[in-house]
Design a protein around this nucleic acid. Structure first.
Length: 651
RNA sequence: GGGCCCGUAGCUCAGCACGGAUUGAGCGCCGGCCUCCGGAGCCGGAGGUCCCGGGUUCAAAUCCCGGCGGGCCCGCCA
């Protein structure tokens, strides 16, 4: 079997040559420097790798430039070279190393043929059981642009880690406990006969804010009646006015639905009490309550699944908060365990149980160990005065549940939860979970802004992921209409769907998660460079060439025929791809691969413009070029597969 | 008040964890290329005190300290 990482052969050879080119006395220092890896020079004309001599020169009391010249000379006169074409001293003290791209091409081609579209997907030596929990949108409204980023990042991680050879399961945490869901369920119970056509998650996305607003106003009005002074009355009136304006807004979006909800809720003596009763009954597992809430959640989830399947996002498991954390009694068990382990950090305030997390972290010594920046970690309430649990407590139960089932747990959750996640991790440490620092990861991501769009959860104003996808598909469809008149209507639809949703995926994964990203249509669906359509177009071009030429991949090619600068560059980039894949998977950075896809596509398009492939007269040159094109096609397949992007074969 | 994240070209970003040689890409703008294997393409140009000020270092966009600007978080919400 050929070696899976062609470029590594070159890198290893460089390291060996450098090591053996210095005197015994310097070898130790050189090895230390090499262990940190060689550098990539800033300009392509400076070779593929570089070794800076400054550090070693300083230790040995030598001039770095001189040392670089010496090393370069020894390497250049060495007969032990296969991949190193030449070594040159440069700058103030660099050894620049140039690869022999023909030898590299041989390795690349045999690797491509051996692994096909698995090329570059280097398997780990230590496969782990990994749970990636992502998306986990509350079942009271459709998935939004924000949960969309979560889903796409999460699914890319799942795909990346699977490709790396880990045993990965994608989990969705259904937050079916808590007041929000109960409000939605209460409203749903009044108007469920109306929710027939259309996507159920969108309907409930309207029922929930409507119900919430109606109940809020009713509650505020009662408080106004009982208000004892003018100031309080004025404040309440102001608040009521605000909510009334919200209900106008909401009603305009479906007057019949709103009116029926209002009429039915008004009949209830005390909606708030009905909602808390529902909450209590659900936590206790009373049958009617369970049936109602589950029916609601399942319908919303049905909508989620429909949306997610368009993006190719699949879950292995749906974990219900009620089952894992509440009905099982796990949350209470945890509270008891904390009471035994750290009674000194617990206090009771008006009946509520509070944990001094800061005290816990000092006591466990994690502040130093984890390099915690904050001096003071806020306290956390574990249990309400009425004995019911809180979200974070239930989340501890879920974290433990996941940690029992996997070596590593990755949670894709918004940055705004950073503090809660830190508190949770400290508690997990307190609960004596082994190696928690490495096993439990909060993979934080930032918000998505969409210029011109206003968001307000009280008004039920959000940017639905469905709308975003529809818009993307529509835009691609218009373009396909313009450019592909020979395609059938069905083909056009298929292309628009795959390329449109792919464009959204690409755009959302292309930006470093810790940055707030701006979603700009002209950027996402621009059909030019740095977009998914551009990459897919490149792939289709490569397929076209291969199809027309009738080329069958073969190792019987003369790599010496690859003399063009673009050919050399393409070979190097593709040979480096496995290194990038490993880095992306190890560092959980899928965006490294979207950047690579773009770079490779740009290179190929430039090449294609300058060099003939099919029309090349010289048979050997033609064959070598076709093998190169075949490699590009294969690498595009592998790399898109690694982050679960689907491409069309015709457009 | 405290903590976290972000600040690089008009716009969107990459490079920063692990310091290294003249910072880069796309869009937009200006100017070229359809006798072409698919123009959803290609080539060229203009455009930057890498937020500011100190420090460490042979070397700072990158590390440290102090500011400034923006976002988020510090609930008996989830």
């Amino acid at each position: 079997m050929p070696y899976a990482r062609p470029f590594k052969l070159f890198e290893d050879e460089c390291a060996n040559l450098i090591k053996s080119s210095v005197s015994e006395a310097m070898r130790g220092a050189v090895e230390d420097a090499l262990n940190r890896g060689l550098e990539t020079p800033p300009y392509r004309s400076m070779g593929e790798l570089a070794y800076p001599c400054f550090e070693v020169a300083k230790v040995a009391g030598l001039n770095p430039r001189k040392l670089a010249e010496e090393i370069s000379f020894v390497i250049s006169s060495s007969g032990e070279r296969r991949f190193v074409e030449k070594a040159e001293a440069a700058g103030e003290g660099y050894v620049n190393l140039y690869v022999n791209h023909r030898e590299l091409a041989k390795e690349l081609f045999s690797s491509i043929i051996a692994f096909s579209s698995e090329y570059g997907l280097v398997k780990t030596e230590r496969p782990l059981k990994v749970i990636v929990e992502h998306t986990s949108g509350n079942p009271v409204h459709p998935l939004t642009i924000g949960t969309g980023r979560n889903a796409i990042i999460g699914d890319s991680l799942v795909s990346l880690l699977k490709a790396r050879g880990h045993m990965v399961k994608a989990h969705f945490y259904v937050n079916d406990v808590g007041l929000q869901v109960m409000i939605a369920a209460y409203g749903y119970s009044k108007v469920k006969h109306r929710i027939m056509g259309g996507k159920p998650d969108h309907m409930i996305g309207l029922v929930y804010p409507m119900t919430n607003a109606i109940v809020e106003i009713k509650g505020l009005k009662e408080r106004l009646k009982a208000a004892s002074n003018d100031e309080e009355r004025a404040n309440l009136t102001k608040e009521i006015d605000e909510w009334v304006s919200i209900t106008y807004d909401l009603r305009s979006r479906d007057p019949e639905l709103f009116d029926e909800l209002l009429e039915k809720i008004s009949k209830d003596e005390d909606p708030r009490r009905a909602i808390s009763r529902l909450n209590r009954e659900y936590e206790e597992g009373v049958r009617d309550a369970v049936e109602l809430v589950r029916e609601l959640c399942n319908r919303v989830i049905e909508g989620f699944k429909e949306t997610l399947s368009r993006l190719g996002v699949r879950f292995d498991q749906w974990d219900w908060e009620s089952e894992i954390a509440v009905w099982s009694g796990a949350a209470d068990t945890i509270i008891n365990k904390i009471s035994t382990l750290a009674p000194w950090a617990l206090e009771t305030q008006e009946g509520a149980l509070i944990l001094d997390v800061d005290k816990v972290s000092s006591n466990l010594g994690v502040k130093d160990e984890w390099g915690l920046p904050g001096k003071q970690i806020p306290k956390l309430t574990l249990k309400r005065a009425d004995g019911t649990t809180l979200y974070t407590t239930r989340d501890i139960a879920y974290a433990l549940w996941k940690l029992e089932r996997a070596n590593k747990v990755i949670n894709v959750i918004g940055v705004e939860q950073s503090l809660a996640q830190l508190q949770l991790k400290i508690i997990l440490k307190l609960l004596q979970v082994e190696d928690i620092q490495n096993r439990y990861v909060h993979y934080a991501y930032e918000l998505v802004r969409l210029p011109g769009a206003k968001m307000s959860s009280r008004r039920g104003r959000y940017i639905a992921l469905d709308d975003l996808l529809n818009e993307a598909v529509a835009r691609v469809h218009r373009e396909v209409e313009k450019r592909g008149p020979s395609l059938t209507e069905e083909e056009k639809r298929e292309i628009a769907e795959v390329v449109g949703t792919g464009a959204v995926r690409f755009a959302l994964v292309n930006v470093t998660p810790s940055k707030t990203m701006t979603f700009d249509w002209d950027q996402v669906i621009n059909f030019e460079r740095n977009s998914f359509p551009f990459i897919n177009y490149t792939y289709v071009r490569a397929l076209g060439i291969l199809r027309k030429s009738g080329f069958a991949p073969t190792l019987n090619v003369d790599v010496a025929k690859l003399i063009h600068d673009y050919e050399r560059e393409l070979v190097i980039q593709m040979a480096r791809y496995p290194e990038l894949f490993v880095q992306a998977a190890e560092e959980l950075r899928p965006e490294i691969l979207t950047l690579f896809l773009n770079r490779l596509s740009e290179l190929f398009n430039s090449y294609y413009e300058k060099v003939n492939v099919i029309r090349e007269r010289d048979e050997e040159t033609r064959k070598a070029r076709l093998m190169l094109v075949y490699s590009i096609k294969t690498v595009l397949e592998s790399c898109t597969k690694a982050i679960n992007l689907k491409m069309v074969k015709k457009m």
